[in-house]
Nucleic acid binder design. Structure first.
Length: 452
RNA sequence: GCGACCGUAGCUCAGGGGUAGAGCACCUGGUUGUGGUCCAGGAUGUCGCGGGUUCAAAUCCCGUCGGUCGCCCCA
């Protein structure tokens, strides 16, 4: 790396977005925004940093080591770069108080920060799509936010063979766990154990299960429940039956199943009571979206948190929602071959590349023609190199994937230019005055052809 | 914060004490007005950075910064 001794490196866990990578980010954000809007959600945002207290009040002091926090020079107030958006959302909802018209459907695409060691799919700065439905307590709301997430993922080309929604429910899982012999006091520990079951050896699992008061049979049932994942096309009651429990234990999941079915989404979903999602603030449905093979971290995670707004000093507003980060999603799309041969294919294609052969007449026409075509809304480029070699200019036009090239040269004496379709390789002479209309028609045709 | 592995051309990587390498990309020419193919030629590096050992370090040692993977944690 030339002269790298004096070149600054980007901070650990951050990314530079060169044009192809920026195109990828915009590609994801467009899918997110379009899906949100199609489902009737409205975009919000908040500050990139908040008072440190906003994050410690809910999670305790332990979270501070995972935050980028700071004081103003000479100031006393502690701030932190936002590690998640939900506290900001809850703060906004709480501060609007009763003037907030409910139900409210909000989405955001914040930049988030965490001070942890980067790993695959986890960086120190990332972009996350957040969708929240406030003031709707029913399973239709849970199903609706899952639908929004899937709309975006399907827009990006992912199908039910690529991704799975793994759904659990705090109440249903707790019911099954208490039937295994887990006491109410040990419930949090039991959830934590369920969450870690794939990371720890079987003997440790049994040991820790025994520590929360389970007998041998109870340990076995706990393990069964935690690792039972079945297609959502099966009624949730079958899970309860498998463990010899009444189907009322999973009544909430039955209601959710009906709502998912109305939206045609059961095929994308699995019932998976091993999904826990931390322990923070979820109160009902909890779910994650994973790649079908399970090779990556969760693409998205969400659920119901009916007490959160109240926790931040607002009225009691039932709420549900999810977050989806750009990092894992990008990895999954790449792995599934849904980003084209190279990222630069996601860059906007120029409609027209103007080529001047270098004659005085051509040079005079170049910029005015570019200006008038741009006024018609076209993406117009010409070379910024000094060469007037037509071959080199055409090479530049094709390397940036221009749809048409227009060559300005000797023909201008007859008020004519050469218009070339760079995809088809065909070219025709066009009257200079007819060029804008001709191009508009050709571009409309090629756009229609691409949509088929 | 802890552990393991890695850092060589724009990119992907080989080389492992003695003159710095390949493929792709790039540039030039074949073609001074026709691209994506082909042929021929060409340029490119403080071998991440700093220090140490050595006659000699890309190579060995220490440190540091970055990357990857795991632990912790997960919003």
């Amino acid at each position: 790396m030339a002269g790298s001794s004096h070149i600054f490196q980007a901070p650990k866990g951050t990314r530079d977005f060169d044009p192809p990578n920026m195109a990828l980010r915009l590609h994801l954000e467009k899918a997110w925004r379009d899906a949100s809007i199609r489902h009737g959600f409205e975009q919000i945002d908040g500050p990139t940093f908040e008072h440190l207290d906003l994050y410690t009040v809910k999670s305790g002091e332990g979270i501070v080591s995972e935050l980028f926090s700071f004081k103003r020079e000479g100031g006393d107030t502690d701030y932190a770069l936002r590690p998640e958006f939900t506290p900001t959302l809850a703060r906004m909802a709480a501060s609007k108080g009763r003037s907030l018209s409910l139900p409210t459907r909000w989405f955001a695409m914040p930049d988030l920060f965490r001070a942890e060691r980067p790993q695959r799919g986890r960086l120190r700065e990332h972009r996350q799509w957040n969708v929240d439905l406030l003031g709707a307590p029913g399973p239709d709301a849970d199903a609706e936010v899952i639908a929004v997430a899937l709309t975006a993922l399907r827009t990006l080309g992912l199908s039910q063979s690529d991704i799975r929604v793994r759904i659990s429910h705090r109440g249903a899982a707790a019911g099954l766990l208490s039937a295994c012999g887990v006491s109410d006091d040990s419930m949090a520990d039991a959830f934590s154990l369920v969450d870690r079951r794939e990371k720890i050896p079987a003997d440790q699992f049994a040991e820790q299960a025994a520590a929360i008061g389970l007998d041998e049979a109870g340990v076995r049932r706990l393990d069964d429940i935690a690792s039972s994942r079945i297609a959502a096309t099966n009624a949730p009651g079958t899970i309860a039956e498998q463990h010899g429990l009444p189907s009322e234990t999973v009544a909430d999941l039955e209601a959710l199943a009906r709502e998912l079915e109305k939206r045609g989404l059961l095929e994308f979903c699995d019932w998976d009571l091993g999904i826990v999602r931390g322990l923070a603030y979820y109160t009902g449905t909890v779910w994650e979206i994973h790649d079908a093979a399970g090779d990556f971290r969760a693409i998205a995670g969400g659920g119901r948190y009916d007490e959160l707004v109240q926790l931040f000093g607002g009225p009691a507003i039932p709420a549900c929602g999810f977050g989806m980060g750009d990092v894992v999603l990008g990895l999954v799309l790449q792995e599934r071959g849904l980003l084209g041969d190279q990222l630069s294919d996601l860059l906007p294609r120029p409609d027209v590349f103007l080529v001047s052969s270098g004659t005085d007449d051509a040079e005079e026409h170049l910029v005015p023609l570019a200006t008038s075509l741009r006024e018609l809304g076209m993406h117009v480029r010409h070379t910024w190199k000094s060469t007037r070699n037509v071959g080199k200019q055409l090479k530049e036009a094709s390397s940036n994937r221009s749809r048409f090239a227009v060559i300005l040269g000797e023909e201008l004496a007859n008020n004519t230019v050469v218009a070339k379709n760079l995809d088809a390789g065909t070219q025709v002479d066009v009257e200079l005055g007819d060029l804008p209309i001709w191009l508009q028609r050709q571009l409309a045709e090629s756009e229609a052809a691409e949509l088929q």
